[in-house]
Amino acid sequence: MPVEKLCYEGGIKAVHQIIEQRISKGKSNFQRLDEDKKVPFIVPKVTWNNALGTGSLNNEHWAYRVGYAFREALDLQFMERIRDKQKVHLWSQGCLLNFKEGDLISSNCGKKYVQVKYASPMGWDEDKNEMYYGSVTYTYVDNENSISEQRHATQTDFLSLLING
């Protein structure tokens, strides 16, 4: 049986927490949140099934099917850390969302989907000393209601759509 790595669901709040931490503490970079610190991650937990060779973000309750392949877009990384003078590998949450051109994500009901046409990642604007929330231009299709339209959002607002619908 594979070892299950637990994360603690924070949704979009996890991203905002990391950003606020940098601003309030006057840090020069973003601190990543490591799973062993019991901090909120975007997803409930990240798991890997060795027998099946598949991973899961365990976020089936989200409105859209954002699978294991979207770890990079959600700034989830499996990183080497030092704990008690030993090297360990842990999941780490960052705040730089990066959905990309071509990403196609269907809804859990199977009647809607979104496809990213253009996107720019989140990042820190050094000149303005503030967060740049990136952008996502995407096609929204609702087959049930015969809707197909182009929409725009920040990376965080796009993630909110994927979580909440």
Rank of each mutant, 00 (worst) to 15 (best):
L90M: 02
L90V: 10
W91G: 00
W91C: 06
S92F: 04
S92G: 14
Q93R: 08
C95F: 12
C95M: 07
L96F: 07
L97W: 14
N98F: 02
F99T: 06
F99V: 08
F99C: 10
K100A: 07
K100C: 04
E101P: 06
E101M: 10
G102D: 13
G102S: 10
D103W: 06
D103G: 02
I105P: 03
S106D: 03
S106Q: 04
S107P: 13
C109V: 03
C109W: 04
G110F: 14
G110M: 14
G110L: 12
G110P: 08
K111D: 03
K111I: 00
K111W: 00
K111V: 00
K111R: 00
K112Y: 08
Q115F: 02
V116T: 11
V116G: 14
K117S: 07
Y118A: 09
Y118N: 13
A119N: 10
S120W: 09
S120Q: 11
S120V: 12
P121F: 13
P121R: 14
P121C: 13
P121D: 13
M122V: 05
M122R: 02
G123F: 03
G123M: 03
W124Y: 12
W124Q: 09
W124L: 09
W124M: 09
D125S: 11
D125A: 08
D125Q: 05
E126G: 06
E126H: 13
D127A: 14
K128T: 02
K128Y: 10
N129S: 01
E130K: 15
M131D: 07
Y132K: 09
Y133R: 09
Y133H: 10
Y133M: 02
G134T: 04
G134R: 04
G134P: 01
S135T: 13
S135Y: 13
S135V: 07
S135K: 15
T137W: 02
Y138T: 00
Y138P: 00
Y138L: 01
T139A: 07
T139D: 14
T139R: 10
T139F: 09
Y140S: 02
V141S: 01
V141W: 01
V141H: 05
V141N: 06
D142N: 14
D142G: 10
D142M: 08
N143D: 10
E144Y: 05
E144K: 01
E144Q: 08
N145G: 00
N145H: 05
N145W: 05
S146A: 15
S146V: 10
I147Q: 04
S148V: 03
E149I: 04
E149T: 12
Q150R: 12
Q150E: 14
Q150P: 01
R151Q: 05
R151D: 00
R151Y: 00
